[in-house]
Amino acid sequence: MAMLIKLDHVYAGYHDSLVLEDVSLTVNEHDFIGVIGPNGGGKTTLVKVISGLLKPVSGSVYLGNELEGGKRIGYLPQINHFDRQFPVTVLDVVLSGALNRRQWFGGFKGEIREKAHHLLEKTGIKTVSSQPIGSLSGGQAQRAFLCRALMTDPLVLLLDEPTNFVDREFEKNLYQLLSELNESMAIVMVSHDLGIISSHVKTIACVNKTLHYHDGPEISTEQLAVYNCPIDLVAHGPVPHRVLKVHK
């Protein structure tokens, strides 16, 4: 399996404070890594380092050649706080995901527009595609941002709490979609929902300043304790059968 991204003894943080210490992680082709950890543990920071948004203080991030210098990393940010008054349509937001250093000017080619429409259709927001982005609900906007992330045909898809705003119905579709996507791209997904994590991901990374990697979708309470990884388990709806016990 080809290596796509490799973090090697990475230290990262903001201003003077270190959030991540000595983090090493490899993302290979076809991986589906669930990232868990307490609030403020550094999950979002980890995703930012992988995406290239945040430069590590020390340590290195290697990108496989196929990633074309990071262009083929798709990123769905955690907080979908955006300027609801900004005058841009949903379709244009999705299309903006296809911009890259070589392709800025003029209109988008037909195939790119087709891809955008296809994605909008698949995520169920095609009907609102010509509306301003500000008129969408939180969940619809989240889907639009997912479409934007998929426009580059990413080889690595980074999802920071993708189910934050979406409803139960779309959540099911989302996981269905993700497992389809997983055939052609590696996925790194941050989530607080351990039940979901253990029934969809292949491996787990637990982030709490440092990172512990679990080579499988299940973690026992004892392991969490050893790794000093306190998780708030949020179980809503019908409880999945692989829910793990809350640990103190």
Binding site: L53, Y75, V93, R101, F108, R148
Partner: peptide, 24 residues
């Protein structure tokens, strides 16, 4: 504005996403 229209809009709307796309 004609030449950079798409870039201007993408960056003005979501600067950090534009950075992940390695846009200037």
């Amino acid at each position: 504005f004609l030449f950079f229209y798409r870039l201007i809009i993408a960056i003005a709307f979501d600067e950090s996403y534009a950075k992940t796309l390695r846009l200037p």
